[in-house]
């Protein structure tokens, strides 16, 4: 069952990624970086030291190739990164279900990076810098992170803030609708985003459908990012014992 135990008027934002539609173009990675003021890589950066809150991973198998957009899975139960943070720099927001990272509290110990089963957290090894001229493209709604702190996907929290402010200005309360940058940029519309608590949303419907699953569902972190595929070998690679949708829908 998808519905959360919480019956309040809170949102529970989640994502469904259709792996069969992803062509590995990387547009989501670039859109994420532009939206969230993630600077270009330093010349010496690599996969471990770079910052890619949204990363598309190419997965090869005898059955073919699959591209898996990988970001913070927004774990709901026993959120591993929040559990280990000595600074309370990681918080699960009950109003949105988003796992937030607060850079001002982070001391850079990187326990959360070690604890994350999805390798979805990145460390700022240096202060952010942009080539001349590119600083004009910075998003004024998002603060760049400083050297020495960890960061990750927060479902474009800046966009959520803007949507919330607009809703409040219009006298609306409760969950708001908004679209993260990766969802907007995906040319093949592989990513669906919305409130999992709202049974009228596409994301709720897709997450329930056969063929949807969560990564490493068996470890019990209850991610709010779901994946879909018609291909058996893709589902089997999800790290679940059964590799089936049923496993993913454990509530």
């Amino acid at each position: 069952m998808i519905a959360h135990k919480d019956n309040s008027n809170n949102a529970r934002y989640g994502m469904v990624v259709d792996i069969d539609r992803c062509t590995g173009c990387g547009a989501c990675m670039i859109a994420c970086a532009v939206e969230n003021n993630v600077p270009p890589a330093a010349p010496t950066a690599n996969e471990r030291t770079g910052i890619t809150p949204m990363r598309v991973i190419r997965y090869e198998h005898a059955g073919g190739t699959a591209f898996v957009p990988m970001m913070c899975q927004q774990c709901e139960d026993e959120t591993p990164c929040a559990a280990v943070c000595p600074q309370n720099a990681v918080e699960l927001d009950p109003a949105t279900g988003i796992v937030g990272q607060i850079p001002q509290r982070c001391l850079g110990c990187r326990y959360c990076m070690a604890a994350c089963p999805y390798h979805a957290r990145y460390f700022n090894w240096g202060d952010p810098t942009w080539p001349d001229g590119l600083e004009k493209t910075l998003n004024p709604s998002v603060a760049p992170r400083m050297r020495g702190v960890v960061e990750k996907c927060n479902f474009c929290h800046g966009r959520w803030h803007e949507a919330k402010e607009l809703a409040v200005a219009n006298g609306k309360t409760g969950p708001v609708e908004y679209t993260p940058a990766c969802v907007e940029a995906c040319p093949s519309r592989a990513i669906t985003f919305g409130d999992l608590n709202n049974s009228a949303t596409s994301v709720n419907e897709l997450a329930r459908e056969k063929g949807s699953f969560r990564l490493l569902d068996s470890i019990g972190t209850a991610p709010k990012v779901y994946y879909r595929s018609r291909r058996d070998w893709v589902r089997a690679a999800s790290g679940n014992a059964s590799g089936t949708a049923e496993g993913a829908h454990r509530g």
Partner: peptide, 19 residues
């Protein structure tokens, strides 16, 4: 791979193995 028009494209091959 598309045109190399922005330094942010490094996300695709320097900081990941996508390209």
């Amino acid at each position: 791979m598309g045109a190399d028009v922005s330094p942010l494209m490094t996300k695709l091959w320097v900081e990941s193995s996508l390209k």
